[in-house]
Design a protein around this nucleic acid. Structure first.
Lengths: 252, 252
DNA sequence: TCGATTTTGTTCTCACGTTCACAAGCTCCT
DNA sequence: AGGAGCTTGTGAACGTGAGAACAAAATCGA
C-alpha cells in the first residue's frame, strides 16, 4: 500500500519535496534518538553519534538528512535541538493529530492506555466499539463511545487518523466507515488485507507475521542447510487433505 | 537489523536457498490468504486470485513463489492445500516454536490474551515480569512468573523466541538476559534501538513510528505543496531552546 | 492427435535504496 | 594568516526489488 505520492513524470522537479519512502520511515527513529540525546544534555552530535544512537550507519543517516536540507555544520556536526525541530516539522508532529481507536478489545484497551500514543503530536479523541456492553466503560480518562457516533466525532474533531483494533471480521467494514466519514490515514492491527480508495494511506501492524518472519530465520539457524527435503508430491493431482492446520486465520 | 544471512560471496550458489528478504516478509501474507481460500472451500487458485486475496500484483506473487520451487500447474493454477503446506514448511510453522513474553504491562497483557499468538506454530510457554506484584497473576490459562526464572525456562522448554513488551528503560537489559539465556530471535515492542550480537535476529514493532509515518503523509495531503517554509535560523550558532517538546521519548 | 486456450515460471529492464569515497567547508591551533 | 584536522553533503557504483512481457507447459475440445 501507501501509494506512490504524486510523482508527476515530466514535472519540473524543482525541489519537489520528494523524500524517499525509506527515509520517511527512518525519520521518526532519528527524532527519538535526538530526543534522547537532548535529554542527556548533549547539544551537538556528529552523524556518527546520531547513527549509533539510531542504529543505522552514518552514510545513510547523512543522506537521509540531506533530503531535508543542509542542517549540519561541516567540521562540527548537528545542533541537536535545531535538527530535532526540523525533523519534527517535516514529519508533521509539531501540530496535533486527532486519532480515533475502533475496537476496544484487549489490544484496543492496551493502546488506549499506552503512553506511547501520548507522544506529543497525537491526541486520542475517541474510543469506539459497536458492542453495547463495552460502551460507557471508562479507560484512563476516556469513555468508550458507540461506533455509530463515528461520523459525528470525525467531523467535530477533524479526525484524520483512525486505528483499527477490531477482529479480522468487521475490519473492512469499519475501514469503509472510517473512510467515508473522512478519515484519510489508517493504522490497521487486524490480520486482514484492507482495501481503500486512492488518497487514503494505510499501514499495517501484524504480530503473527512478525513472528513468522522470525521463525523463518530461526529455522535456518537450527536446520542450517538441512531443511527437510520436499516431499515431492507422491501422486499430486487431487487435493491433499488432512494437512496440519497452519498459519493465517487469526480471526474473531 | 536482521543481518544478511550467510551470503558467501564466491559460493557455488547451487540452489543456495536464498530467498530474498522482501519475499520472506510476504510469505506469511500468502499463507493467510491461502488459509482463507481453503476455509471457503476453494481447492485451486490462480496467481491472479491469490494476488488479489493477498493484496499484491500477480507477477510479484508468481516470482515470490518461484523461489520456493515449482508448486503450480501451468494452465491451471495452484492447489490451495498443497501450496499452503509448502509455504508453512518453508516458513517453519509446521513445527511449534516456544515463545516467552517479558513485561506484563498493558501490552504484554493484551498479547498474552491475543488469539493471534495462538496461531498454530507458536506456543507461549511463559509470561515473565520483574515486578513482584504482578508475579502470580493469572492471565488466561497462564500464570505470570518471575523474570529471574528466565534461564531455567528457556533451557527447559527450548525457547528460541522472546517478545519484549517492557518500557524502554529496562528493554536492553532484558534483551541481554534473553540472549545470554539462549534466545536467538527477538520481537521488540519497546521504543528503543536494541543491540544484539551477530546471529541473533531482532524485529521491531513501534506504534508511534507508524503513526508518525502516517502523519507525514497526512501533512502532505492537507498542506499540499504549502509546507510552512523553513524558519531559516535567524542567528543560529548557539542552542535553540524552548522548542515544542516533540517526538521520541515514550519511556516508562 | 492436434490446435486453441489458459496460466505458470522466468528473463529482462528499470527504479529504488544502500554504501563508498571524496571534495567542500568549518574550526582550531600555531 | 595559514595550515592541519574534522565532519558534512553528494556524486557515483553497486545491489536489490518490482513490473512487463513472453516462452514453456498443461488442459480441453474437436
Amino acid at each position: 500500500m501507501t501509494p506512490a505520492r504524486s510523482r508527476r513524470p515530466g514535472a519540473p522537479t524543482r525541489t519537489e519535496r520528494g523524500i524517499p519512502e525509506a527515509t520517511v520511515a527512518r525519520l521518526p527513529v532519528y527524532l527519538r534518538a535526538l530526543t534522547a540525546l537532548s535529554d542527556s544534555g548533549i547539544a551537538t552530535a556528529s552523524s556518527e553519534d546520531l547513527a549509533t544512537a539510531a542504529g543505522v550507519n552514518s552514510a545513510k543517516l547523512r543522506k537521509d538528512l540531506s533530503y531535508l536540507g543542509s542542517y549540519g555544520t561541516r567540521g562540527v556536526g548537528y545542533d541537536v535541538e535545531y535538527l530535532r525541530y526540523q525533523i519534527a516539522r517535516e514529519i508533521g508532529v509539531t501540530q496535533d493529530w486527532a486519532v480515533v481507536i475502533v475496537g476496544i478489545g484487549n489490544l484496543g484497551h492496551a493502546l488506549a492506555n499506552y503512553s506511547g500514543f501520548g507522544t506529543r503530536g497525537f491526541r486520542i479523541v475517541a474510543l469506539l466499539d459497536a458492542d453495547p456492553t463495552l460502551v460507557g466503560e471508562q479507560i484512563g480518562d476516556m469513555i468508550v463511545r458507540d461506533f455509530a457516533e463515528l461520523e459525528e466525532i470525525v467531523a467535530a474533531d477533524r479526525v484524520s487518523i483512525g486505528v483499527i483494533t477490531t477482529p479480522a471480521g468487521p475490519a473492512q467494514e469499519v475501514c469503509d466507515r472510517l473512510v467515508s466519514a473522512g478519515v484519510t490515514s489508517i493504522l490497521n492491527f487486524a490480520p486482514v488485507v484492507l482495501t481503500v480508495p486512492t488518497g487514503v494511506d494505510i499501514r499495517k501492524v501484524d504480530l503473527s507475521i512478525e513472528l513468522q518472519i522470525l521463525a523463518y530465520h530461526e529455522q535456518r539457524k537450527s536446520g542450517e542447510a538441512a531443511l527437510p527435503e520436499v516431499p515431492e508430491l507422491p501422486a499430486m493431482n487431487g487435493v491433499v487433505s488432512d494437512l496440519p492446520s497452519v498459519g493465517g486465520g487469526v480471526g474473531a
